[in-house]
Design a protein around this nucleic acid. Structure first.
Ligand SMILES: [Zn+2]
Ligand SMILES: [Zn+2]
Ligand SMILES: [Zn+2]
Ligand SMILES: [Zn+2]
Lengths: 132, 132
DNA sequence: ATCAATTGCGTTATGCTATAACGTGTGCAA
DNA sequence: TTGCACACGTTATAGCATAACGCAATTGAT
C-alpha cells in the first residue's frame, strides 16, 4: 500500500515516531501529543492503524510498541518479511530483511498449505553498544 | 532448562494448556481454573512464568496467548529458534523449527555483534482446513 | 537446632494496552 | 439532493500484566 497524503492526526503521530530514538507505545505517543490537542487513545490507535496499512510504521508485537519504518521511500512490503533486532537495554531497533529467511519460511508455509497474512520476526537482546 | 517437579498451580495451568485445542490467554486459563480455587491473574502469570522458563510452554507474542510445547520430551531450546504458524480462523497453532532460518538469523546477529536473548517468529494466517 | 535465604502462594490494588459504541462534520459522487 | 465513505472527538469498557504486601514451607548453611 502506498501512503497517500496523511491527515493531520496521522501526520502528527508519524512525526513523533520519526523523531523518536526508538519504538514508542501508543500511550507514550498520546502523551507527546497532548499539547497538539490529543485527548484519547483512539486518536493514536486510529492514526497508527492507517500508518501500518500504508507501511510507513511497523508494530513490534513483543513489546507492544510502534516504530517508523527505517527504509523510507522503499516499500517495505515489497522486499519481503521485515525483521527486527530490539535492544532491551537502550531500546534501539534495527530493521532488516533477509530473503533467504523469507524463502525458507514461505517454503515451509507452502508445504503446509498455510496461507500467511502477517509474519513477525523479532529478536530481543543486547546491541553492540550496550553489550559492554 | 529442564522441568523439575511442578507445583500444584503450575501443574494445573500446564494441564489446562495441554488439553486445550489452541493457545489460551492468561485470563482464559484463570477462568478455567476457578473451580480449582484460582482467584487472581497472578496465580496464572506466576505459574506461566515458570512453565516458560522450563520450556514446556510457549508464549505467542502476537496474540498475547500461551500454548503447551508441541514437542514434549525434547528440549525445544536445544533445537534452535521455535516458530509458529497461527490460524486466525480456527486458532490452531503449528509449532516448527527450521535450522536454516536459525542459521541465517544468527549469522545476521553475529555480523551486527548483537547478543540475542529471545527470538520470536510467528506467522499469522489461515490453515489448510480453514482456507476453504 | 537455629537462622537466613529462597521459593511458592494468596490477596488487593493498580497500571498498561486496546477497542466498542455513539455522535459529528466534511467531501464527493450518483 | 441524497447517500456514502471517511476522519474525527468523546466516553466508556474490555483485556492484559505487574506492584506490593504478607504468610508459610523448604532448604541449606552455621
Ligand atoms: Zn520498514
Ligand atoms: Zn542497546
Ligand atoms: Zn516447543
Ligand atoms: Zn484454521
Amino acid at each position: 500500500m502506498n501512503a497517500p497524503q496523511l491527515t493531520r492526526n496521522q501526520a502528527l503521530v508519524f512525526d513523533v515516531l520519526e523523531k523518536a530514538e526508538g519504538p514508542l507505545s501508543a500511550y507514550t505517543i498520546l502523551d507527546k501529543l497532548r499539547d497538539q490537542g490529543f485527548r484519547a487513545p483512539l486518536q493514536v490507535y486510529r492514526a497508527l492503524e492507517k500508518l501500518l496499512e500504508y507501511g510507513v510504521v511497523h508494530r513490534l508485537e513483543s513489546i507492544n510498541s510502534f516504530v517508523a519504518c527505517a527504509h523510507p521511500g522503499e516499500d517495505c512490503h515489497s522486499h519481503g518479511i521485515v525483521a527486527f533486532a530490539i535492544c532491551e537495554s537502550c531500546g534501539q531497533v534495527i530493521e532488516f530483511h533477509d530473503h533467504e529467511v523469507d524463502h525458507r519460511l514461505m517454503s515451509w508455509v507452502r508445504s503446509q498449505k498455510f496461507k500467511p497474512a502477517k509474519t513477525t520476526i523479532e529478536i530481543r537482546g543486547t546491541c553492540e553498544a550496550c553489550a559492554a
